[in-house]
Amino acid sequence: MNDVLNQAIVSGILIGGLYAVMSVGISLTWGVLKIINLAHFSFILLGAYVTYQLSTTLGWDPLIALVIVIPGGFLAGVIMQVFFELAKVDEFQSLIISFGIFIIFQSVTRTIWTADFRRIDGDTNPYESMSFFVGDIAVQVATLIAFGVAVAIAIGMTVLLTRTYFGKAVRAIVEDPEIARAYGIDVRRVAVLLSGLATAFSAVAGVFIATFQSLSPNMSFGWFGIVFPVVILGGLGSTVGALGAGVIVGVAAGVATTEWGPLSASLVTFLILIAALLFRPQGLFTRQSST
């Protein structure tokens, strides 16, 4: 077997976990609330920059930043959903409005942190260089933790959706919001909570990105090409699907990078997106639903 290829596959699986965390928020709001929220990209970016800032100025371990980032992301999601509810936007308007929000945050980020590349200093960031070997294959700790979080989110959301009243309400809203409302579910409250949760996931993805990548405001444009294939392939609103699709995209991009160079990765992910749209528009990991 080819060692380089094995390495690419293992790294791809792990980075796929990160892709899943990045995508799960967008997938949830799109699938359940019918809101395509491009502002999630802003909150991934903000999560990363806030982590960078806390580590650099206060000398915090990047993972401690989660204490700030998770509530912050939750609050942002709540505010956004309240705004969407008050403005009564439809799916299509939400796309344009959140695009406007995204552009504003893009500019704000560039103003605060400039367009230069920023990276957490190695002294305060032990995860970047930390790795161990399984046989000949190196495992980067930063991506391993991200993968663990992705698995935890997938399991946690599955439990939440199947075992709790909140989850039952969410599933009822997916089926039919009007009937759910008629049966006494406070749709607005569920929506606000879910949006908060989804945005917190996105912000968490930002923390992990900050642990092993250089940050620049424009990197968020590149995420579009990763997150949308994952969301479509995984199936809208499916957290387990996002994890599976994240791994597929991560492995495909990783193998493409080792075989044809780093620039071919976005081409491959795009082809996956097209293939997914052509052959399984409902996603690989969801059963053929009522739609």
Binding site: F99, G100, I104
Partner: peptide
Amino acid sequence: QVIIGGLLIILV
């Protein structure tokens, strides 16, 4: 960009 983004939201 801030103005453009804000305008977009208001106009929609």
